[in-house]
Amino acid sequence: MRTIHTDTIIEAVKNLCIEANCSLPNDVYCAIEKSIGTEKSQIGKGILEKIKENADIAKEQNMPICQDTGMAIFFVKIGQDVHIEGEYLYDAINEGVRRGYKEGYMRNSIVRDPLDRVNTGDNTPAVIHTEIVAGDKLEIIFAPKGFGSENMSATCMLKPSQGEAGVIDFVLDTVKKAGANPCPPIFVGVGIGGSMEKAAILSKYALTRDVEYENPNPYYRKMEEFLKDEINKLGIGPQGFGGSNTCLRVFIETFPTHIAGLPVAVNICCHVLRHKKIVI
């Protein structure tokens, strides 16, 4: 049994919040850089150059890449041989968010109730997904999510007979409907299988992968490439002004499902694909 004190977790979460929001991951930066070379629209090329410049400014001045510093989403993998000492784990994560968003001069975007809509003033609570895994480590992935793109995401319960074609149609339809709203070029996370909520969580988790991540399943690897090409044929382009780069990468995650169902979830992320992981 290994003991981890929540003070360590609070500090780690605080730092994750600031770093993820101010410093674009290198793989995402490279994907944007690469897209400048392939963009056929002149307006689009100009936008991609400004997006790259924005990431440089944010990193240099330690300011958020985007003013929508997001709802704080966490995927926490807790080794079963870890003993957490101190306060309640969820309280510790929320305290880290509170401190990180304040010290990092980030925007507080959370309202306490979806209908009365009063801002909580400290960007808490976070959405925390936990999983118990083997081992004695604690892995925390932080992925702040802006709602320009979150609002354009969707889930659908397809019939098994709709199969692969149904999945492809639903992904393309969702991206088409989203148009300029999610700040293209976008990244698309697709969750297929499980139950309704499992598919949605998979689609979110898919967006925590690195751009270079290679899907271990060759069938889905091919489908990711196909979907990306089809999305780019839509012509939406950078910021929706028309162009050849609408999507920089599709990530698919799957899970076994019920004999009667084919759940699909599409989680769209803007070009600011923020995610950062630490292992304690």
Partner: peptide, 12 residues
Amino acid sequence: GAIGGAGALLAK
């Protein structure tokens, strides 16, 4: 339209 996701640049 201003560039969405380029808030650090626009602040200048």
